[in-house]
Design a protein around this nucleic acid. Structure first.
Lengths: 363, 363
DNA sequence: CGGTCTTTGGAAAACGCTTACCGTGAGTGT
DNA sequence: ACACTCACGGTAAGCGTTTTCCAAAGACCG
C-alpha cells in the first residue's frame, strides 16, 4: 500500500482501493456531488487521496461530465500592454471561479485567429474571448463567423472585446465617444490643426490613406477600433470647423513601431501649422513621441501628443501623455463574467474618460 | 443527413456514420496514425467531418491517448513586461508545436502558486513552466517541491525560469554575472557611490534590509533573482574598494511601485554623495525614475539610474535607461523547448549583456 | 415488531476517443 | 493454381471519470 513509485498518476480507482471503498463512493467523496457519503468513508477516501497524491484527471472529468473548466483567450500580442492588461483581468477573474485560461496569440493574423478558434472548439472551452482586433474588411471574417456559430450551436460562448457584435456577446467600448470627448477637450485647450496616426484604416476622408493601408498590408483592412476612434475624433474637429485634411491622417500599423513610423512620415512631409498629433492608441502615441524626440522635436512642448487606452506604462513616460482612459483590467473581468456567468448583465458599454496630462499643454 | 441542429457537438461516431465507414477508419483518417487508410475513404471521412463541422474532442483524445497537448505557464503578473515578454515567447513556441498554453498568475503569492501547480497536475499538462519568482525562504517551498516531484514522477516536466534548480529543469539566467558586468561598466564610467533598489531580500550586507523586508512582507522572503543581482553588483563594487553601505541597499517590492517607493525612501533619507541607483529590474528602475522626477531630480543628469532585463518599454522612456539585456522572448522559447523537446539542449546559461544608455552618462 | 421512508454503497453504463487484434481480399512468386 | 504476404477495414477493449439504477441497511412510525 501507499505505493508511490508507479509511473503514471494515481487514478480514482487506486484511491478507492486504498480506501477500501467503491469507485462510486470515492468519486462522490472527492467532488462532493448531490449525494452524501458517510463521514467515516469520506475521510477514508480523502486520506487515501492525499497519501497517493491524487489529482483528478481533468480530461476524464471533462468527457464524463461533458463540460470543461477551460476558457480560451485570444489576444493579438501579450507583449502589448493593452492586451496584457485585459489578459490579466481575464485570468484573475477566471482563477476566482476555478477556471483555467488557455491563452493564444493571433499575432494579428486573422487566418491564425480562425485556426485558433477551431483549436479551442476542439478543447471544448467553455467560452472563447476574442480580444484580438476586428477588421472591417477581413477576408476570413465569414470563416470566423461560421466557426463561432458552430461553436455557440454546441453550447459555447463567444465574447468580443471592444467591437460590438450583432451575432455574439461583447464588451463594447465607446471608442468613438471617447475620441469625441478627447477632441472636444483639445479644442477647448486651443488646438486647431491635428494629425491622426490611425491604424490600418478604410475610413480616411479621401481614399489615399486606405489605399496606402491596403498597399502596406496586402489587402484592404480597417481595424474597427481604429476606425471608430479616428472618426469620432475627426468628426468633432470637423464640426468645429477644423476639418482634418486627408494628408494629416496617416495609416500605419496598430503598434508602437507603427506609431514611430507614422510620426516619421509626418515629419518628413513637413509639419507646417500642425499643433498636435492624436495616435489612436497609447503604444502608437508612445512610439510617436520617440520618433519626435529622435528628430529633435520635444513632444508636449514643440508638438502636442495624445493617445487612447491609458495603459499602465504611461505613468513612467515623459511628458505624461494625455489619453482616454479605459478600465482594461475591468474589461477583462467583465468579458469573463459575460462568458461564464448566466446572470451576467448584458453588454453595457464601457465608458472612456479623457485624462489631460502634460503632453497637451494649454495653447 | 448533414443535420447541423444538434445541440451538442458532432462526434467521431457521427462523422463515421455520415461517411459510411467504421469508427476506427474515421479516427485513422482524421489524425493520420501509423496506419494507412485508402484515399477514397480518407476523403469520404474528411468531407463528412467538414460537413458536420467536426472538431475532435481534445479531452476524449487526452484520456484515450493518455497525454494532453497542454502546457502550463505560471507567471507572477502578465502585466509586468518581464513576464509578458517571456509569456509571448512561450506561447508562440507552443503554437508552432500545436500545443495549447494554459496561463495563470501567481500574483506573487506562493500559496497560490502551489495551488496552481496542483491544478495543472490535474489538467495533466505536458509541462509546467514556472516563471514566477523563486524565494530563498519560502514557507511553501517544500510543498511546491513535493507537488512538482509528484508531477514529474508521473511523467510531467517542470521547468524553472531564471533560477537554476538542482531538482528540476531550468533556463538559468546569469543574474549575478550580468550584475557584475554592469557594475564593472559603471565603475569604468566613474561611478563610486551607488545605491541599490533590491527586491525583498535576505542578502543585505547588514541585517537591516532583510529585517525590513520581513516586516513589509509578513515573513522572511528573499527573491532569488533579486539576491543574485544584488550580490553580483555589490561584490564588484566592494572588490573595487567601494563597498556599498547597508543603508544604501533598499528592500522593496519587485514591482514598478516598489521601485517608486524605494526611491522615495532613498530621497527622504538624504542623497549625500550618491551618484547612481541600480534597480534590480527595469520596472523598478522606471518607477524609481518617476519618483526622482516627481521630486524635481532629473534622472540621468542629476542622478544616474540603471536597471536589469531590457524590457521593450525602455525604448520609449527618457532618459534611455542603462540596463542588462536579457533575451526574454528567447528565454520563453527555450523554456518551452526544454519542457517539450526530448533532445532539448540542456540548461545552457542565458548570458546577459550590458547596454549603456543615457541614464548613466560618463562621469 | 412489521411496514414504509430515507440514507448510503456498489455495479455498470455511459462519455468520445485510440488502438490492439482479427479478418478479408488483392497482389506476389513459384 | 497455390500458399503467402500485405494493405486495409472493422470489432471491441480500453482510458479515468461521473452518474443512473438498484439493493441493502437503518430510522421512524404506529
Amino acid at each position: 500500500m501507499t505505493e508511490h513509485d508507479r509511473t503514471s498518476a494515481a487514478t480514482l480507482h487506486d484511491v478507492a482501493r486504498e480506501a477500501g471503498v467503491s469507485l462510486a463512493t470515492a468519486s462522490r467523496a472527492i467532488n462532493g456531488s448531490t449525494r452524501n457519503v458517510k463521514e467515516s468513508n469520506r475521510t477514508l477516501v480523502l486520506d487515501a487521496a492525499r497519501r497517493l497524491g491524487y489529482a483528478a484527471n481533468a480530461s476524464a472529468q471533462a468527457v464524463a461530465r461533458g463540460t470543461t473548466t477551460t476558457v480560451a483567450l485570444l489576444v493579438g500580442d501579450v507583449t502589448d500592454p493593452y492586451f496584457s492588461s485585459i489578459a490579466s483581468g481575464v485570468v484573475s477573474a477566471a482563477t476566482e471561479r476555478a477556471l483555467i485560461v488557455a491563452m493564444s496569440q493571433t499575432e494579428r493574423d486573422s487566418q491564425r485567429e480562425v485556426d485558433l478558434v477551431r483549436a479551442m472548439r476542439g478543447q471544448r472551452a467553455r467560452a472563447i474571448i476574442l480580444a484580438a482586433s476586428r477588421r472591417a474588411n477581413d477576408p476570413h471574417a465569414d470563416e470566423l463567423q461560421r466557426e463561432l456559430e458552430a461553436y455557440e450551436a454546441n453550447g459555447g460562448r463567444a465574447v468580443f472585446i471592444s467591437t460590438p457584435s450583432e451575432d455574439f456577446r461583447a464588451v463594447p467600448i465607446d471608442n468613438s465617444g471617447g475620441a469625441r470627448k478627447l477632441a472636444a477637450a483639445l479644442l477647448e485647450r486651443g488646438y486647431r490643426s491635428p494629425a491622426v496616426l490611425a491604424g490600418p484604416s478604410l475610413v480616411g476622408t479621401s481614399d489615399e490613406p486606405s489605399a496606402k493601408a491596403a498597399d502596406r498590408l496586402g489587402g484592404p483592412a480597417g481595424l474597427r477600433t481604429s476606425d471608430d476612434r479616428l472618426s469620432g475624433f475627426a468628426e468633432c474637429f470637423a464640426a468645429a470647423g477644423h476639418a482634418i485634411p486627408s494628408r494629416r491622417i496617416i495609416s500605419t500599423a496598430f503598434t508602437r513601431d507603427g506609431g514611430y513610423e507614422g510620426m516619421q512620415q509626418l515629419i518628413a512631409s513637413g509639419l507646417d501649422d500642425l499643433d498636435m498629433v492624436f495616435a489612436v492608441n497609447d503604444v502608437m502615441a508612445v512610439g510617436a513621441m520617440s520618433a519626435l524626440r529622435d528628430a529633435g522635436i520635444e513632444p508636449g512642448r514643440d508638438l502636442a501628443v495624445a493617445g487612447f487606452d491609458d495603459i499602465p506604462t504611461l505613468r513612467d513616460v515623459t511628458p505624461r501623455l494625455t489619453t482616454v482612459q479605459l478600465p482594461l483590467t475591468e474589461v477583462g473581468h467583465r468579458a469573463l463574467s459575460l462568458a461564464i456567468d448566466d446572470d451576467a448583465a448584458d453588454a453595457e458599454v464601457v465608458e472612456a474618460e479623457v485624462v489631460i496630462r502634460e503632453s497637451t499643454p494649454q495653447r
